[in-house]
C-alpha cells in the first residue's frame, strides 16, 4: 500500500457546494482524495469530480512559462519581459483611450484574495469599474 508523504485539507475546486477535501500526496502527486466526516458542507461525501477529477493538476499540457505574441505566434518569454509588456501596454492604452477602454475579468475559479487584488488593480490603479466575471454564464 502506498503511504502518503502528507495529507492536506483543502476545498474542492469544482462546484459551489464547497466540499472539504483531503488531498493525499506522495512524491508531489495527488494520488488519492478523501473527505473528513465532520466537514461542514459535505460530511465526508464527495461527487465523482471531487473524488477523481484531479489529473488536470499533473497534465502534460499545463502552461510552464509565459508566452508572448511575436509575428502573430505565441512564443516563450521570460517573466520580466512578459510582465513589463503587460504593464506598458495597459498604461499606454489607458493614456490613449482612457481607463474605461480596459476591462478585467476576474474568476469564479480563483480565490477571494486573487479576485480582490485584480479588481483593486482595475479600480485603484487603472481607474475603471469595468470588472466582471463569467459566472453569470
Amino acid at each position: 500500500m502506498i503511504k502518503e508523504d502528507k495529507v492536506v485539507t483543502t476545498t474542492c475546486p469544482y462546484c459551489g457546494v464547497g466540499c472539504m477535501l483531503n488531498l493525499h500526496i506522495k512524491e508531489n502527486v495527488v494520488y488519492k482524495v478523501t473527505s473528513p466526516f465532520d466537514a461542514p458542507a459535505n460530511k465526508g461525501n464527495l461527487c465523482v469530480k471531487g473524488r477523481f477529477g484531479y489529473d488536470f493538476i499533473h497534465a502534460k499540457d499545463r502552461l510552464t512559462q509565459p508566452l508572448m505574441r511575436k509575428n502573430n505566434e505565441l512564443v516563450p518569454a521570460t517573466w520580466d519581459e512578459a510582465m513589463n509588456h503587460v504593464a506598458e501596454r495597459l498604461l499606454e492604452i489607458r493614456d490613449k483611450y482612457g481607463p474605461d477602454s480596459i476591462g478585467f475579468l476576474v474568476s469564479a475559479k480563483c480565490t477571494n484574495e486573487e479576485n480582490y487584488l485584480l479588481q483593486k488593480i482595475a479600480r485603484g490603479v487603472i481607474g475603471t469599474n469595468n470588472v466582471d466575471h463569467c459566472a453569470r454564464l
Binding site: I93, S101, I102, A108
Partner: peptide, 11 residues
C-alpha cells in the same frame, strides 16, 4: 474597449 485582462476564465 481596447484591452482585456482575463484571469481564469475562458469566455
Amino acid at each position: 474597449v481596447k484591452a482585456l485582462y482575463i484571469m481564469g476564465e475562458n469566455p
